[in-house]
Design a protein around this nucleic acid. Structure first.
Lengths: 348, 348
DNA sequence: CGTGATATTGTATACGTATTCAACAAAAAC
DNA sequence: GTTTTTGTTGAATACGTATACAATATCACG
C-alpha cells in the first residue's frame, strides 16, 4: 500500500506517485527525474539508473496531464464524427485511430447527432486543448472556424468543403465520381436513369448528384426520376426505392444511389420484394465500396473511395499543419475509381 | 490579435487567455473568475456579470487540462477496442461515445490490433488519468489489472470475463445463447449439425461453443463437424464454410456460426458458390443480430445481443464504480434472444 | 448603535510537470 | 598549470486552474 495518500474527499482516486516522490527515494532532484523521462535530457548514466530504480520500486507513471499543461500540447487529436450507422464511417474511425496511434497521437471522439450539436462539441474539444481536429460529415460555422484559428488549433475537414478560410480539406472527387457513373450507365445503353439522393444538405450528395446530372446532360440525356432517401442508410434507401419504383411512372432501367448502403437497400427492395431481375431489368450503382458491396449476394457496382489514401492524406495534412501552424490552407483531392461488378449491365 | 503571446518556440500554439487575463480586465481576482465557472461558486451577481463581460470580450475558454490536474479527474473514459471490421463493434463505439457524452464524459479511443498491444495502450490510458476504462475484446493481464486498481481507475470488461479480482464485468450470456441454438436446431429436426468457430482464444467463442455442444449432448446429439474461421469476419467465415462443405464427409444440414459475419460468409458461399438451397438443404444460424442480418437478402436467424442494454449497463456500472471506488466487483449478465428468420428451418 | 450571522472577495497555495539559469565538476586544450 | 569547453545537477519558476483560509462587507435583529 502506498505510503502516502493525497486528497481528502472520499471520492478521490488512490495515491499516485509524483516525480517528487521518485526524486526523494532516488536522492536526486525532481528536475533530474523529469530529465530521465525527456528524450535527450542531460543526465548521467549513474543518476538515470538511480531514478529508474526508484521509478520501478514505486511503480511511478508520468502524469501526461501535467505535462500537457506545461508543454501546451496534449498529443490528442479530436475526431468529430456524425452519428454513423454507415460502415464507411465506422471503418474511418478505425483507421484514423490506428494511424494516429502510429504517429504517437491519441483520439478523442466527439459523436454528434444533429448538425447543430457541433456547436457544443467543438468548443469542448478546444477546452481539452487538442493538438488538432478532424471533422467528418459536418461543416464548421465560420464562428467556430475562427475560434479554432484563434486558438491555433489546425482543422482538417474530411470529405467536406470548408470555405471558412482556415480549415484544410481532404476529400474524394465526388463530382468526378458522379460523372463516371453517368458515363458507365450511358455507355451500357441505359435510357431511363434515376438518382436516389442521400442526406440532401451534405456536400458529398450535392457533388455526386451534380456531377452525375451534368454529365448526363452533356451527353444528351436527362435524369428520368429522382428520389431522396434523406439519410445515408439502408432502410431509407429501401424506402426511397419503393417510392421510386412504385410511383406509377415507367420504371427506370438504372439507378445511381448516393452511397452503397442506399444502393443495397434499393437492390434488396427491387430484387426481393418486387422480383425485378438485377441487372437484366435494372442496373444499380452505389458509392463508397464498403466491404459488403463485394459480397456475392450483392456484387454491387460502385465508385470506390480509396479510404486508406484518404485517411493517410488527412493525417499527413494535419501533421504538417501542426508542425507549421502558419501554413496556407491545404486542399487535397483524391480521385475515386469505378468498380465494375454484377449489379449493372456492361457495355453491349 | 491577442495582446499577449506566450511561449517562445515557433511551433507553440497561439496565445490563449487565462483566468488571470480575464481577472485583470474585469478588475477582480483570478479566484473570482474561477468561481464564475464553478457551479455553486460563491459570487455576487455584480462580479459575475463583470467576469462574464470580460470573458466574452476576450473570448476566454477554460483550460480543462489545468482543471483536470488540480481536480485529479479528467472526465475522460478510455475505451479499448480491438481492431474491428465487425459492425457489431462499430455500433458499440458509436453507442458508447453517445451515452458517455450524455453523462458528461468524453471518450479516448485506444485501438489495438494484437492482443499484446494492450500492454502498451493501457498504461498510456492510465498516464492520461482517465476516470475509467471500458475494455472490449481483450482481457487484462493480472499485472495490468493491478496497476489499474492501484491507481484507482475502475475497469469494466465488456463481453469478456475478467478473473483479476478488480475488473467489473458486463456480458451477454453466450453460453445460454449457444444452448438456445442447439434447441432450435434439434427441434427443427436437424441431425448433422456443424459449428464454425470465431477467434479461438476469445471467451465469447468458447462460451457459445460450449453451451451449444453441451446442449446437443444433453439431448443425445453430437457435433457432426467443426471448423474454425479464426477471426470474426466475413472472409474468414466464407473460407471456413468452404473447407467445411467441401471436406468430403457427408454435408451437414445445419451450421451454427460464432457470429453473424461468419454466418453471412458461410451463407453466401453455400448459396452463391455451391448452389445449396437455404434453408431447405441447409440451415444457418448466427450470433449478434447486426443490422444486415435482417436484410431480405440474408434473413439470418440469429441470437440477438441486446446491445443497447449492454452498453447502458456497462456505463451504469462504470459510473457507479467511479462514484464508489471501494465497491465490490460487479458482474451483470444480459440474456440474449433467438430471432427467427428465413435462414433456418422451423419446427415441422 | 451594537452584535452576530452571512455573503462576498482576495491571498496564498497546491496539482505534477518541463525548463531556464546558474553553479559546479570534469575533461580537454593549450 | 591555466584556461576553455563540455557535461551534470539543483533551485527556482511557470503552466492555468481550484480551493482553504482569512479578511472584509453586508445585513438582520435587538
Amino acid at each position: 500500500m502506498p505510503a502516502k495518500k493525497r486528497g481528502t474527499t472520499s471520492s478521490s482516486k488512490s495515491a499516485d506517485f509524483s516525480q517528487v516522490d521518485v526524486a526523494r527515494l532516488a536522492g536526486v532532484s525532481q528536475a533530474a527525474v523529469s530529465r530521465a523521462f525527456t528524450p535527450g535530457g542531460s543526465l548521467s548514466d549513474d543518476t538515470r539508473a538511480k531514478v529508474m530504480a526508484a521509478v520501478k520500486q514505486l511503480g511511478y507513471r508520468p502524469n501526461v496531464i501535467a505535462r500537457s499543461l506545461v508543454q501546451n500540447s496534449t498529443n490528442i487529436i479530436g475526431l468529430v464524427v456524425k452519428r454513423f450507422t454507415n460502415p464507411f464511417y465506422a471503418q474511418m474511425i478505425q483507421e484514423f485511430t490506428r494511424v494516429l496511434q502510429e504517429q504517437g497521437y491519441w483520439t478523442l471522439v466527439f459523436n454528434i447527432a444533429e448538425k447543430q450539436e457541433i456547436e457544443e462539441a467543438l468548443p469542448m474539444a478546444l477546452q481539452y486543448r487538442v493538438d488538432g481536429l478532424i471533422i467528418t460529415s459536418a461543416t464548421l460555422s465560420s464562428k467556430l472556424a475562427d475560434e479554432c484559428a484563434r486558438s491555433g488549433t489546425p482543422v482538417v475537414s474530411f470529405n467536406r468543403y470548408a470555405t471558412d478560410g482556415h480549415s484544410h480539406m481532404v476529400y474524394c472527387d465526388n463530382f468526378e465520381g458522379g460523372r463516371m457513373v453517368a458515363d458507365a450507365l450511358i455507355d451500357a445503353g441505359h435510357t431511363r436513369i434515376a438518382y436516389i439522393a442521400g442526406e440532401e444538405s451534405s456536400s458529398t450528395n450535392r457533388d455526386r448528384e451534380t456531377g452525375f446530372v451534368r454529365r448526363l446532360e452533356e451527353r444528351g440525356h436527362a435524369l428520368a426520376l429522382r428520389e431522396s432517401a434523406g439519410e445515408y442508410d439502408y432502410e431509407m434507401g429501401y424506402a426511397a426505392a419503393e417510392r421510386l419504383l412504385l410511383s406509377g411512372t415507367p420504371r427506370p432501367d438504372a439507378i445511381f444511389c448516393a452511397n452503397d448502403l442506399i444502393a443495397m437497400g434499393a437492390l434488396d427492395l427491387a430484387r426481393c420484394k418486387l422480383g425485378i431481375k438485377i441487372p437484366a431489368e435494372l442496373s444499380i450503382i452505389g458509392f463508397d465500396d464498403i466491404p459488403a458491396a463485394g459480397w456475392p449476394s450483392y456484387e454491387l457496382t460502385t465508385v470506390r473511395q480509396p479510404f486508406g489514401i484518404l485517411v493517410d492524406t488527412t493525417i499527413q495534412v494535419l501533421m504538417d499543419a501542426i508542425h507549421d501552424p502558419e501554413s496556407e490552407v491545404i486542399k487535397k483531392v483524391v480521385t475515386p475509381t469505378l468498380i465494375w461488378r454484377g449489379s449493372s449491365r456492361r457495355k453491349e
